[in-house]
């Protein structure tokens, strides 16, 4: 029917966002930007959950997305606290300079 969207387009969009998140995590050197890329990946996964909830006509996918959101909030709080502590001690956010565990 005209005007309706195939379900697979949502999955494609999710794949694109996931790949971009992976790219950001690998290419960027700023620890905050890397952290935001992880949030982008989690959002892409959430879109997949919601899409499958639509396809299966079940609310369980929504609950999984909800739990991902809650865990992401907890992760953001702890992660940003770690970033604050790292910056306080090392005066840098560049991931290449944070190599004190190397040797």
């Amino acid at each position: 029917m005209m005007g309706h969207v195939p379900l697979s387009w949502f999955l494609m969009l999710s794949a694109v966002l996931f790949s971009l998140g992976v790219a950001g995590f690998i290419f960027r050197r700023n620890i905050i930007t890397m952290f935001m890329s992880i949030e982008l990946i989690l959002n892409a996964v959430n879109l997949t959950f919601i899409t499958f909830a639509y396809q299966r006509q079940q609310v369980a996918g929504h609950l999984l997305a909800f739990f991902v959101m809650v865990v992401a909030a907890a992760e953001a709080a702890v992660g940003l606290a770690i970033i604050l502590t790292v910056f306080k001690n090392r005066e840098t956010l560049n991931i290449d300079d944070l190599d004190s565990m190397k040797n």
């Binding site: 029917m1 969207v5 379900l7 697979s8 494609m12 694109v16 790949s19 639509y54 079940q58």
Partner: peptide, 25 residues
């Protein structure tokens, strides 16, 4: 990206279409 898109298109052909009110749960 191409791998993800390929398997998505392969496994999920255009059978289901999304429209408003298709899922009320």
């Amino acid at each position: 990206l191409a791998l993800l898109a390929f398997f998505t298109a392969r496994i999920y052909p255009r059978d289901t279409e999304v429209h408003f009110g298709g899922f009320r749960g």
